[in-house]
């Protein structure tokens, strides 16, 4: 997911103070927690980590698709792709704002991203090699993200919930635009169809990895679910994603690159192969194909933009001083 392997810092129910118990009771009743209200430090820190990672994923996620804006094959596709990548910047902005209500500044979060202290989703460390990847990313990556984001609209933290509502509303076109590219390619020339199949082959397992490793034994996951900042287990979401995506691939006439894939009547879902988790952990550690380039691009944008941000601040200060003097 856009937030993977978030470390959760909670207290076991039997060790909770009365204040913590009352807080948990509010969440259990489905109440929203708002910025200025009391919250356990663990809840606050876990949320900062999760929302921050989600925000970082949005802005780093601009890069693999941004790659193709200047190479989009028609004016219309160019405009659509640009609008989509722009949305990702907007979504990053909404999420950073939500994190800021927890007492951390956006610039601090940027610094943590740039130093490697905070991560972003593993998926954005994979390269986009052909135009079909714009289809595959929209269809599979946004499709996987939506699985997580839709339930997160009901998360317990008010600003996060509202950011997710806005993001889900705007993102509804993203997956469809990806699928629309895949449809055009799958029904296009043989070369286009091959390109589409190749994109599916490369993005299938990285997309499955987005949900994170199986978390049935994870204590972090249990705590986050109690706090309603994680709404489903990774395995539930992965299963749902596979169940919805396989028929979409069939419609395209493309093959999911998994020979073990089979419908399981009993569980009313597909049996499918796990991704290579050792690859996932390597990517998380920084050894994915594009980790270095992605982070460098962000750091460069930030460093080279310093004079711009400072110039505007300086002017605003001068103008404010001039207004004061005039009054």
């Amino acid at each position: 997911m856009y937030a993977q392997m978030i470390k959760s810092e909670g207290t076991k129910r039997e060790d909770m103070s009365p204040q913590e118990l009352a807080f948990q009771a509010r969440i259990d009743r489905g109440e929203k927690i708002e910025p200025k209200e009391w919250m356990p430090e663990g809840y606050r820190k876990t949320l900062i980590r999760q929302i921050g990672q989600h925000a970082h994923s949005e802005i780093v996620g601009q890069l693999p698709e941004g790659n193709w804006i200047t190479r989009a094959p028609t004016l219309e596709r160019k405009a659509i792709l640009l609008a989509k990548v722009q949305d990702e910047a907007g979504h990053g902005l909404y999420l950073y704002s939500a994190a800021e209500t927890l007492g951390v500044s956006r610039d601090e979060l940027f610094e943590k991203l740039h130093s490697g202290a905070m991560k972003y989703s593993s998926i954005f460390n994979y390269p986009t090699l052909t135009w079909a990847d714009m289809g595959a990313v929209g269809w599979l990556v946004d499709g996987a993200a939506i699985m997580n984001q839709v339930p997160l609209q009901r998360t317990s933290y008010g600003p996060y919930s509202r950011a997710m509502i806005r993001i889900c509303k705007e993102e509804s076109f993203h997956q469809r635009q990806g699928y629309s590219i895949m449809m055009t390619m799958a029904k296009g020339t043989p070369a286009q169809k091959d390109m589409a199949q190749d994109a599916l082959n490369r993005f299938w397992y990285p997309a499955l990895m987005m949900f994170g490793p199986s978390d049935k034994d994870s204590v972090h996951s249990e705590q986050s679910m109690a706090w309603k900042i994680k709404m489903n287990t990774n395995d539930e979401l992965r299963q749902k994603f596979v169940n919805e995506t396989v028929p979409q691939a069939e419609y395209l006439g493309l093959s999911v690159p998994d020979e073990t894939l089979a419908w399981n009547e009993e569980k009313q879902g597909y049996d499918f192969a796990e991704p290579d988790w050792s690859e996932f952990f390597e990517v998380i550690k920084g050894n994915g194909p594009c980790n270095r380039e992605r982070l460098e691009a962000r750091v460069t944008a930030w460093d080279e933009g310093a004079w711009f941000r400072e110039g505007l601040s300086a002017h605003a200060e001068k103008a404010a001083a001039a207004r004061m003097a005039a009054e």
């Binding site: 802005i59 601009q62 890069l63 941004g66 804006i69 200047t70 640009l82 609008a83 990548v85 722009q86 910047a89 907007g90 990053g92 902005l93 950073y96 691009a297 460069t300 944008a301 930030w302 080279e304 933009g305 310093a306 711009f308 941000r309």
Partner: peptide, 16 residues
């Protein structure tokens, strides 16, 4: 060409 590389998120969005 600025998309994803702007000096501030707000400016990135405005340029797009």
């Amino acid at each position: 060409e600025w998309c994803g590389h702007g000096p501030a998120l707000e400016e990135d969005i405005a340029l797009a």
